[in-house]
C-alpha cells in the first residue's frame, strides 16, 4: 500500500481551486496526517448524538444509509465500470426479505440478514449472469428493466408483499435485549454499517480482485489476454454491489418498520447513481461526500423542493462534461 509520493509540480498551484486541491494533496500525502483526520472524523461522528437533536440525527442516519448504498454502487460503477440503473431493486430485495420474513414468518431480524444476502446474490447472478457477457451498455438497460420488474412484482404479489400499500409491522431489531427504537440507536447502527462498508470497499479496491476490476474497466481485451475472466470479474462486482444494497435494505426495513414498492422506483436508483457520480466514481471518500451532499443539499435548500431532481439532472450532465472525476480530487501520480 505504499503510495508513490512525488513532489507537487509548482506550476499547478495557480488558480484558486486547483491551488487548494494541490495544498490538500501535499497535506494529506503523509499517512499520519490522513490517519489523524480520519480519527477526528470518526470521533466527531460518534459524539454527535450527545449534542445533536433528533432532526439532525435523522438526517445523518439517512445520509449514512445512502453512503452504504453509494459504496455498494461504487463497486459496480466505479470499480468495474458497469452502469447499473436498477440498483434500488437490490435494496428492495433486502428490505422485502426482512419485511416478509419478520412480519409474516416471525423471523428474528438478524437472521433475515443472511437470507437477504442469499437472495441478493441470487438476484445479482440472474440479472448479471446473462447480460454481463454482452457489451456493457446493454447491462444498463437490462438493470433498468430489472428495477421495473422488481417494483411491479412487489406491487402485484399482494399476498407476500402487501401490494401497492406495502408491508407494515416489520420487527425492529433488538441488540442483547435492547430493542432498537430510538433514532440515536439507528444512528449508531448505520454508522457501524458505514464503517464496515468503507472497510470492505477499501480492502476490495486494494486486492487482486480490485485490480482485476480496473484492468477490465480500462481494457477488456487486454485483461482477457492476461487470463482474466471478464464475465466472472464483472459478475463479482455486480453481486458484491447487490449484497451491499441487500444488507442496507434489511436495516432500512428494520428502521422504518414499513416499506412500499414506491420507495424503490427508478428515481431511487438515479439518486444513488447521482451521488456516486457527484462524489467521484471509484473513490471511497468521494462516496461519503457525494451521499452527504445529496441528502444535505435538499435539507438546506428547502425551497427547491420539487425541482430537486431537475437540479440533479443538470448537475449530472455538467459534472460529466466539466469534472468527470467528481468532487473528490483524483489522486496524482
Amino acid at each position: 500500500m505504499a503510495e508513490p509520493s512525488t513532489p507537487p509540480p509548482a506550476a499547478a498551484a495557480t488558480s484558486g481551486l486547483a491551488g487548494l486541491e494541490e495544498r490538500l494533496f501535499v497535506f494529506f500525502d503523509k499517512r499520519s496526517r490522513r490517519r489523524l483526520v480520519q480519527g477526528l472524523l470518526v470521533l466527531a461522528a460518534v459524539s454527535i448524538p450527545l449534542v445533536g437533536d433528533s432532526y439532525l440525527l435523522e438526517i445523518l442516519t439517512n445520509s449514512f444509509f445512502y453512503i452504504v448504498l453509494c459504496l455498494g454502487l461504487n463497486i459496480v460503477v466505479g470499480y468495474a465500470g458497469l452502469l447499473d440503473l436498477g440498483y434500488a431493486a437490490f435494496f428492495a430485495v433486502g428490505a422485502y426479505t426482512t419485511g416478509i420474513l419478520t412480519s409474516q414468518f416471525d423471523w428474528n431480524f438478524w437472521l433475515t440478514i443472511p437470507a437477504a444476502v442469499f437472495f441478493s446474490i441470487i438476484a445479482g447472478v440472474i440479472i448479471g449472469g446473462p447480460t454481463l457477457r454482452l457489451r456493457s451498455d446493454y447491462l444498463a438497460i437490462v438493470t433498468l428493466g430489472f428495477g421495473e420488474i422488481t417494483r411491479i412484482a412487489a406491487r402485484n404479489l399482494k399476498e407476500l408483499t402487501g401490494g401497492a400499500s406495502g408491508l407494515i409491522g416489520i420487527n425492529r431489531p433488538s441488540f442483547f435485549g435492547l430493542e432498537l427504537n430510538q433514532i440515536h440507536h439507528y444512528y449508531y447502527v448505520f454508522f457501524i454499517l458505514v464503517l464496515l462498508a468503507v472497510f470492505v470497499s477499501f480492502r476490495l479496491q486494494h486486492s487482486r480482485l480490485g485490480r482485476a476490476w480496473q484492468y477490465v474497466r480500462e481494457d477488456e481485451d487486454a485483461a482477457e489476454a492476461m487470463g482474466i475472466d471478464r464475465v466472472a470479474v464483472k459478475l463479482y462486482a455486480y453481486v458484491i454491489g447487490a449484497v451491499f444494497a441487500g444488507v442496507a435494505g434489511c436495516f432500512f426495513a428494520g428502521k422504518m418498520t414499513a416499506i412500499s414498492p414506491e420507495t424503490f422506483q427508478f428515481m431511487q436508483s438515479a439518486t444513488i447513481l447521482m451521488a456516486v457520480v457527484l462524489g467521484g466514481m471509484g473513490k471511497i471518500p468521494g462516496m461519503i461526500v457525494g451521499a452527504l451532499a445529496l441528502i444535505l443539499f435538499p435539507e438546506i435548500f428547502r425551497e427547491i423542493g420539487s425541482v430537486r431532481m431537475l437540479v440533479f439532472g443538470v448537475v449530472l450532465v455538467m459534472m460529466m462534461i466539466f469534472r468527470p472525476q467528481g468532487i473528490w480530487p483524483e489522486r496524482r501520480n
Partner: peptide
C-alpha cells in the same frame, strides 16, 4: 463534448438528460 470520452461518461450523461427532461415537464 463526450464523443471521445469513455463510454460510461456519455451513458451517465444520457441518464442526466433524461432526468432533466422529465423533471422539467413534471415541474
Amino acid at each position: 463534448p463526450l464523443l471521445s470520452a469513455p463510454r460510461l461518461s456519455i451513458l451517465i450523461v444520457a441518464v442526466g438528460v433524461s432526468l432533466v427532461l422529465f423533471n422539467s415537464v413534471m415541474v
